[in-house]
Protein backbone atom coordinates (compact mmCIF):
# COMPACT_ATOMS: atom_id res chain seq x y z
CA UNK A 1 0.00 0.00 0.00
CA UNK A 2 1.39 3.32 -0.98
CA UNK A 3 0.76 6.81 0.25
CA UNK A 4 -1.86 7.44 -2.41
CA UNK A 5 -3.94 4.35 -1.57
CA UNK A 6 -3.87 5.19 2.08
CA UNK A 7 -4.82 8.80 1.43
CA UNK A 8 -7.87 7.70 -0.53
CA UNK A 9 -8.92 5.30 2.21
CA UNK A 10 -8.42 7.85 4.91
CA UNK A 11 -10.38 10.44 2.99
CA UNK A 12 -13.17 7.97 2.58
CA UNK A 13 -13.41 7.42 6.33
CA UNK A 14 -12.90 11.07 6.98
CA UNK A 15 -15.97 11.87 4.88
CA UNK A 16 -18.10 9.78 7.24
CA UNK A 17 -16.42 11.45 10.22
CA UNK A 18 -17.27 14.87 8.83
CA UNK A 19 -20.85 13.91 8.03
CA UNK A 20 -21.36 12.56 11.53
CA UNK A 21 -19.83 15.72 12.97
CA UNK A 22 -21.96 18.11 10.94
CA UNK A 23 -25.24 16.25 11.33
CA UNK A 24 -24.66 15.92 15.07
CA UNK A 25 -24.24 19.69 15.35
CA UNK A 26 -27.21 20.45 13.13
CA UNK A 27 -29.54 18.40 15.31
CA UNK A 28 -28.02 18.67 18.76
CA UNK A 29 -27.76 22.46 18.94
CA UNK A 30 -31.51 23.12 18.48
CA UNK A 31 -32.41 20.07 20.57
CA UNK A 32 -30.07 21.35 23.27
CA UNK A 33 -31.87 24.70 23.25
CA UNK A 34 -35.21 22.95 23.65
CA UNK A 35 -33.88 20.83 26.52
CA UNK A 36 -32.46 23.92 28.20
CA UNK A 37 -35.87 25.61 28.03
CA UNK A 38 -37.34 22.42 29.48
CA UNK A 39 -34.82 22.46 32.35
CA UNK A 40 -35.67 26.08 33.12
CA UNK A 41 -39.42 25.55 32.82
CA UNK A 42 -41.58 26.69 35.72
CA UNK A 43 -43.60 23.51 35.18
CA UNK A 44 -41.78 21.33 37.70
CA UNK A 45 -42.35 17.84 36.22
CA UNK A 46 -40.92 19.01 32.89
CA UNK A 47 -37.85 20.63 34.38
CA UNK A 48 -37.33 17.62 36.63
CA UNK A 49 -37.57 15.27 33.65
CA UNK A 50 -35.14 17.30 31.55
CA UNK A 51 -32.62 17.60 34.35
CA UNK A 52 -32.79 13.87 35.03
CA UNK A 53 -32.21 13.01 31.38
CA UNK A 54 -29.27 15.41 31.28
CA UNK A 55 -27.85 13.87 34.45
CA UNK A 56 -28.11 10.33 33.02
CA UNK A 57 -26.62 11.22 29.66
CA UNK A 58 -23.79 13.27 31.12
CA UNK A 59 -23.20 10.70 33.82
CA UNK A 60 -22.66 7.69 31.56
CA UNK A 61 -20.02 7.01 28.93
CA UNK A 62 -20.84 7.93 25.35
CA UNK A 63 -19.58 4.51 24.30
CA UNK A 64 -22.20 2.85 26.47
CA UNK A 65 -24.87 5.09 24.95
CA UNK A 66 -23.78 4.03 21.47
CA UNK A 67 -24.21 0.40 22.42
CA UNK A 68 -27.57 1.05 24.01
CA UNK A 69 -28.97 2.90 21.02
CA UNK A 70 -27.67 0.32 18.59
CA UNK A 71 -28.41 -2.95 20.38
CA UNK A 72 -31.13 -2.39 22.96
CA UNK A 73 -34.11 -1.88 20.61
CA UNK A 74 -33.35 -5.25 19.05
CA UNK A 75 -32.70 -7.02 22.35
CA UNK A 76 -35.80 -5.69 24.10
CA UNK A 77 -38.39 -5.52 21.38
CA UNK A 78 -36.97 -7.79 18.76
CA UNK A 79 -36.94 -5.01 16.21
CA UNK A 80 -33.75 -4.13 14.49
CA UNK A 81 -34.11 -0.42 14.03
CA UNK A 82 -30.67 0.03 12.61
CA UNK A 83 -29.51 -2.31 9.92
CA UNK A 84 -26.82 -2.08 7.30
CA UNK A 85 -24.17 0.60 7.06
CA UNK A 86 -26.74 3.36 6.97
CA UNK A 87 -28.41 1.92 10.04
CA UNK A 88 -25.15 1.87 11.95
CA UNK A 89 -24.49 5.43 10.96
CA UNK A 90 -27.98 6.45 12.01
CA UNK A 91 -27.61 4.73 15.38
CA UNK A 92 -24.35 6.55 15.97
CA UNK A 93 -25.94 9.81 14.93
CA UNK A 94 -28.87 9.34 17.33
CA UNK A 95 -26.53 8.60 20.22
CA UNK A 96 -24.29 11.56 19.43
CA UNK A 97 -27.21 13.95 19.02
CA UNK A 98 -28.74 12.97 22.36
CA UNK A 99 -25.40 13.10 24.13
CA UNK A 100 -24.32 16.43 22.72
CA UNK A 101 -27.77 18.00 23.06
CA UNK A 102 -27.54 17.36 26.80
CA UNK A 103 -24.11 18.95 27.08
CA UNK A 104 -25.19 21.91 24.96
CA UNK A 105 -28.40 22.32 26.96
CA UNK A 106 -26.37 22.86 30.13
CA UNK A 107 -24.20 25.43 28.39
CA UNK A 108 -27.29 27.21 27.07
CA UNK A 109 -28.93 27.13 30.47
CA UNK A 110 -25.86 28.57 32.13
CA UNK A 111 -25.66 31.27 29.45
CA UNK A 112 -29.31 32.20 29.63
CA UNK A 113 -29.35 32.27 33.41
CA UNK A 114 -26.26 34.47 33.49
CA UNK A 115 -28.07 37.31 31.71
CA UNK A 116 -28.96 39.91 34.35
CA UNK A 117 -32.62 40.21 35.29
CA UNK A 118 -32.45 43.89 34.43
CA UNK A 119 -32.20 43.07 30.72
CA UNK A 120 -35.53 41.25 30.83
CA UNK A 121 -37.11 43.97 32.91
CA UNK A 122 -35.90 46.74 30.62
CA UNK A 123 -37.39 44.88 27.67
CA UNK A 124 -40.63 44.32 29.58
CA UNK A 125 -41.20 47.93 30.52
CA UNK A 126 -40.65 48.83 26.87
CA UNK A 127 -43.60 46.62 26.00
CA UNK A 128 -41.70 43.77 24.36
CA UNK A 129 -43.20 40.30 24.16
CA UNK A 130 -41.37 37.35 25.68
CA UNK A 131 -40.43 36.25 22.19
CA UNK A 132 -39.07 39.63 21.15
CA UNK A 133 -37.17 39.85 24.41
CA UNK A 134 -35.48 36.53 23.79
CA UNK A 135 -34.66 37.06 20.14
CA UNK A 136 -33.75 40.75 20.08
CA UNK A 137 -32.24 41.23 23.52
CA UNK A 138 -31.18 38.01 25.17
CA UNK A 139 -30.03 35.64 22.44
CA UNK A 140 -27.00 37.50 21.12
CA UNK A 141 -25.78 38.17 24.64
CA UNK A 142 -26.07 34.46 25.39
CA UNK A 143 -24.20 33.56 22.20
CA UNK A 144 -21.34 35.82 23.20
CA UNK A 145 -21.16 34.33 26.66
CA UNK A 146 -21.28 30.69 25.59
CA UNK A 147 -19.03 30.83 22.56
CA UNK A 148 -15.96 29.59 24.44
CA UNK A 149 -17.62 26.59 26.16
CA UNK A 150 -19.45 25.70 22.94
CA UNK A 151 -16.21 25.73 20.98
CA UNK A 152 -14.73 23.38 23.57
CA UNK A 153 -17.59 20.94 23.13
CA UNK A 154 -17.46 21.15 19.36
CA UNK A 155 -13.77 20.35 19.35
CA UNK A 156 -14.39 17.42 21.67
CA UNK A 157 -17.06 16.23 19.27
CA UNK A 158 -14.56 16.12 16.41
CA UNK A 159 -12.55 13.59 18.35
CA UNK A 160 -15.52 11.77 19.87
CA UNK A 161 -16.71 10.81 16.39
CA UNK A 162 -14.01 8.17 16.44
CA UNK A 163 -16.04 6.37 19.13
CA UNK A 164 -18.57 5.47 16.45
CA UNK A 165 -16.26 2.68 15.42
CA UNK A 166 -17.45 0.62 18.39
CA UNK A 167 -20.65 -0.08 16.48
CA UNK A 168 -18.70 -0.50 13.28
CA UNK A 169 -19.52 2.83 11.64
CA UNK A 170 -17.05 3.31 8.82
CA UNK A 171 -15.44 6.46 10.15
CA UNK A 172 -11.77 7.20 9.72
CA UNK A 173 -10.46 4.65 12.22
CA UNK A 174 -12.71 1.81 11.41
CA UNK A 175 -11.96 1.71 7.69
CA UNK A 176 -8.25 1.81 8.19
CA UNK A 177 -7.34 0.21 11.43
CA UNK A 178 -7.27 -3.43 10.34
CA UNK A 179 -5.21 -2.62 7.34
CA UNK A 180 -2.51 -0.77 9.17
CA UNK A 181 -2.30 -3.08 12.11
CA UNK A 182 -2.05 -6.21 10.04
CA UNK A 183 0.60 -4.69 7.87
CA UNK A 184 2.51 -3.25 10.77
CA UNK A 185 2.32 0.29 9.37
CA UNK A 186 2.77 2.99 11.98
CA UNK A 187 2.89 6.19 10.02
CA UNK A 188 -0.79 6.13 8.89
CA UNK A 189 -1.75 6.57 12.53
CA UNK A 190 0.13 9.84 12.57
CA UNK A 191 -1.43 10.63 9.24
CA UNK A 192 -4.87 10.26 10.87
CA UNK A 193 -3.72 12.61 13.60
CA UNK A 194 -2.96 15.17 10.91
CA UNK A 195 -6.55 14.98 9.67
CA UNK A 196 -7.85 15.71 13.14
CA UNK A 197 -5.35 18.44 13.78
CA UNK A 198 -6.24 20.23 10.57
CA UNK A 199 -9.95 19.86 11.27
CA UNK A 200 -9.61 21.19 14.81
CA UNK A 201 -7.29 23.92 13.59
CA UNK A 202 -9.90 25.13 11.11
CA UNK A 203 -12.58 25.10 13.82
CA UNK A 204 -10.33 27.00 16.20
CA UNK A 205 -9.81 29.69 13.58
CA UNK A 206 -13.54 29.81 12.90
CA UNK A 207 -14.43 30.23 16.56
CA UNK A 208 -11.67 32.80 16.99
CA UNK A 209 -13.20 34.76 14.13
CA UNK A 210 -16.68 34.56 15.70
CA UNK A 211 -15.32 35.73 19.02
CA UNK A 212 -13.67 38.66 17.32
CA UNK A 213 -16.92 39.49 15.50
CA UNK A 214 -18.71 39.60 18.85
CA UNK A 215 -16.04 41.56 20.64
CA UNK A 216 -17.38 44.89 19.36
CA UNK A 217 -19.14 45.32 22.68
CA UNK A 218 -18.44 44.45 26.28
CA UNK A 219 -21.08 43.47 28.76
Amino acid sequence: MNFWDISVKLLDGFGITCLLFILTLVFSLPLGLIISFGSMSKFKPLSWLCRTVVWIIRGTPLMLQLFVVFYVPGMLFGVRLFTGDDGRFLAALVAFVINYACYFSEIFRGGIESIPKGQYEAAQVLGMTARETFFTVIMMQVVKRILAPISNEVITLVKDTSLARVIAVGEIFFVNEMDFLSRGLVWPLFYIAVFFLVFVGVLTLLFGWCEKKLSYYKV
Binding site: P116, Q119, V125, V137, M140, K144
Partner: peptide, 12 residues
Protein backbone atom coordinates in the same frame (compact mmCIF):
# COMPACT_ATOMS: atom_id res chain seq x y z
CA UNK B 1 -42.00 54.50 31.60
CA UNK B 2 -39.26 53.34 33.96
CA UNK B 3 -35.65 54.39 34.21
CA UNK B 4 -33.61 51.97 36.33
CA UNK B 5 -30.87 52.67 38.79
CA UNK B 6 -28.55 50.40 36.78
CA UNK B 7 -29.54 51.77 33.31
CA UNK B 8 -30.08 48.29 31.84
CA UNK B 9 -29.17 49.31 28.32
CA UNK B 10 -28.88 46.49 25.79
CA UNK B 11 -25.10 46.12 25.46
CA UNK B 12 -25.07 44.70 21.94
Amino acid sequence: GLVFQSFNLFPQ
